[in-house]
Design a protein around this nucleic acid. Structure first.
Lengths: 169, 169
DNA sequence: TCTGAAAGTTTTCATCC
DNA sequence: GGATGAAAACTTTCAGA
């Protein structure tokens, strides 16, 4: 794992790829002022470093009928690290768990569920929260409007903050 | 906007594409038992219907140093629909707002922030929550462990629930 | 609607600047 | 580091079953 210095072009490319990964190397190069092969060399560096992990297709939720999004705020019983590990494994077993975060503060976990139909939503909530012995209490916030979705990460901070590390193979 | 009937192969393909959109048509076809051109025809149907919107690159947060994820739970002052619209616009102006949901229940908005450095995190929280006249109160849950991230949607429910609609162009 | 082959791009790599 | 040009691979189209 070594440092991977990123210049402005790198930050731009990473932002573009996080918005749309289907653009050609030529297209990307035209936008940032580089040849296709120069873009490729940089992209390969990101991949080798483990910074760029993979590409995913994004579905438009408006075209998946009956899809329900819900944010669940979970408080767990005081438990051992081992029990926590097992609870996270149980979360990962359910494909409708779109996101799950262990957090600090007023709750212990934030879980985003994406289900087809309210019936499935209830099944999942029952399994993961009501019937789970590790869960003390939980509350569900149903999503009325997904104002913004995605998993884009910024790569640079306000000033010089934000070098990037990656494995050098 | 018309119905787009999906069979089991379609559900499988959509799940595969949401996991990894870089696989070739041949590769996908081999996995589900279809020729590359048959896969292409189906994928084009999803795109024309608006179901498949675009592809994005996923960064590994472990290789973006100083990246901080936080889930903010926001309660707003009673406001008009117009004020709500303007608040959502202010959220969308900030690139560090990775996700934002208007929700029902104990809070009004759930906002996921992804920032490089705690300093930037504080700047953004100040701007969007502390200084905003529409916000009554908010609480921040810092992410200790991103157990699962992503934006994958299921396309089928427990039983026959979950036909898919899309625009036919 | 699928298969299989042909045409057109894109990605990739070696080479040079 | 970046540009150029050739080779390989993939996507896309189309005729035929």
């Amino acid at each position: 794992m070594s440092d991977l210095r990123l210049d402005d072009l790198d930050h731009d490319l990473l932002a573009l790829l996080q918005r749309d990964a289907s653009r050609t190397l030529r297209d990307l190069g035209d936008e940032v002022g580089l040849s296709p092969s120069a873009v490729l060399r940089r992209v390969q560096r990101y991949r080798c470093a483990g910074l760029l992990s993979h590409n995913v297709a994004v579905l438009d939720p408006r075209h998946v009928p009956e899809v329900i999004l819900a944010v669940c705020l979970v408080t767990i019983e005081d438990d051992t690290p081992e029990e926590g590990r097992r609870y996270r494994e149980r979360l990962l077993e359910v494909p409708e768990v779109q996101q799950a975060y262990e957090v600090s503060g007023d709750y212990d976990y934030v879980v985003v569920l994406a289900c087809v139909g309210m019936r499935r939503e209830n099944e999942v909530a029952k399994r993961l929260f009501q019937q789970d012995p590790n869960v003390k209490r939980y509350t569900t916030l149903f999503v009325l409007d997904p104002v913004r979705t995605g998993s884009a990460l910024p790569t640079r901070g306000p000033d010089g903050v934000g070098g990037v590390t990656g494995a050098t193979d």
